[in-house]
Write a protein that binds this DNA or RNA. Structure first.
Lengths: 244, 244
DNA sequence: TTCATGGTTCGAGGGTAATCGAACCATCAT
DNA sequence: ATGATGGTTCGATTACCCTCGAACCATGAA
């Protein structure tokens, strides 16, 4: 009778408000302590501990113990993706009921999704990289073109500096606010790391929001391939000359 | 404190085994009656009715009344996507614990996801259509190329025959068993409809499984563009010629 | 050692909701 | 009309689990 794995188990884990708040707080990819997660989700330490134990057992979070601090991190990129898709559904269903706070526009503009850039700017980066020929969708996977590596080299991202892992290099992630794809995977993480390091963006404390400095946004736009002209589309898909 | 919409509400709806069974049963895109859903999920009519009312209120399913029969269908493509991603997570987390039944290989091979083709063959169709240049990822969206329309015309799919709606024509959907993309959207639905009509595949009753007839599989392969690289090349992803 | 801090474990209380029996309503067939 | 079938509503029972107070364990500091 059961088709696949027990989907209700993980869904029930996300189904509690306290736990979902914790998970959303971890969406920025940072590892938070149990105490921080407790106060963030509005429950006592004991309750939080119980919830975290369940999340850990279910594999939705991972724990790292440092001294007397227990750091919790999201269980993986797939967990982040699942949360984003759930956000997608929630948004559509009771979106009208939810009042949008003042921070929402910033959140839509640019935010951290697990470890990479999301929001309008995240989608924009992905779009430009695709239309500019820096990455191509080969069906089975996204790959970086030679022109792409050349462009990445200009912001000091080189293949040998991206940590190796079983995780795919490029991946797409569905965007909750835009309902479009943006760049995830190791490369997506590396890009965010880089623009943070370069000071193009800075994080807003205790939130997923990231804010571009005006010079940073200019620098990003200068790095990205320009928007293609609206007329002819990809069949000729040449990499813009400036990139080479 | 709340970032976005109340994600825990929808997650809690999926979090009950009876409800998740119902939702998974609806993943094939068909509309089932309340009674069928009751027996499928293993609860009485009364319980099922209560669950369905909740799902309806949450927008996860839609109801259509015909005579004394109440047909329930999935609330939308985004709901199907969310369920697939949750399947993805569940698979990874407690996949080893779940014993794989005999039907699983068939389910992995080809199944219905909402209204389109999924599984190995679904991914294969998507891959070939991308690598063969029938559809292209323009970043913001997938579009069908002129060559793509010509190919689709050969299996009697024409632009004016695809029902208009706000739903995107082409969309990708993450595959639970393959963890890769396959073709969704209105075009994905139309393709499935077509190959069902042509008798290339037939549905296995009371499941999401679809089975290709041998002639049907040959016909599909004959229609699809051939695989680009000569041998099976799993790791050394070759960039298609025109990107360079 | 002694104290303080961060986390977990235990137990009890309380509320939500899943479940089913029974009754009720609507539709179709005879 | 009368009966049969498909669904929903109501009420009561039951079980789960969320929550927190209190106690307990581990680490770091004085």
């Amino acid at each position: 009778m059961k088709d696949g794995p027990d989907i209700s188990r993980v869904a029930a884990l996300v189904g509690d408000p306290a736990r979902s708040n914790m998970l959303l707080a971890l969406m920025d990819g940072r590892a938070l302590t149990a105490g921080e997660l407790a106060s963030l989700s509005g429950v006592t330490k004991q309750t939080a501990s119980s919830h975290l134990a369940r999340l850990l057992d279910g594999g939705l979070v991972a724990r790292e113990v440092q001294g007397r601090h227990h750091y919790y991190r999201l269980g993986g990129a797939d967990v982040a993706l699942a949360l984003e898709t759930l956000l997608c559904v929630s948004e559509r269903r009771n979106g009208s009921r939810t009042r949008t706070g003042p921070r929402d526009p910033d959140l839509r503009r640019a935010r951290i999704c697990y470890d990479h850039l999301a929001g309008e700017l995240g989608v924009l980066v992905y779009d430009r990289m695709i239309s500019g020929g820096l990455i191509v969708d080969e069906g089975s996977k996204l790959t970086v073109t030679p022109a792409g590596w050349a462009a990445l080299d200009r912001i000091d991202i080189r293949p040998d500096e991206i940590p190796a892992s079983r995780r795919p290099l490029c991946r797409t992630c569905l965007d909750w606010s835009m309902r479009r794809h943006h760049l995830a995977g190791r490369l997506g993480g590396q890009i965010l790391k880089t623009i943070l390091l370069k000071g193009w963006v800075r994080r807003v404390p205790d939130s997923r929001i990231i804010r571009f400095s005006s010079s940073g946004e200019r620098a990003l736009m200068a790095w990205l391939p320009p928007q293609p002209s609206p007329g002819r589309n990809s069949s000729g898909g040449r990499v813009p000359g400036r990139a080479g």
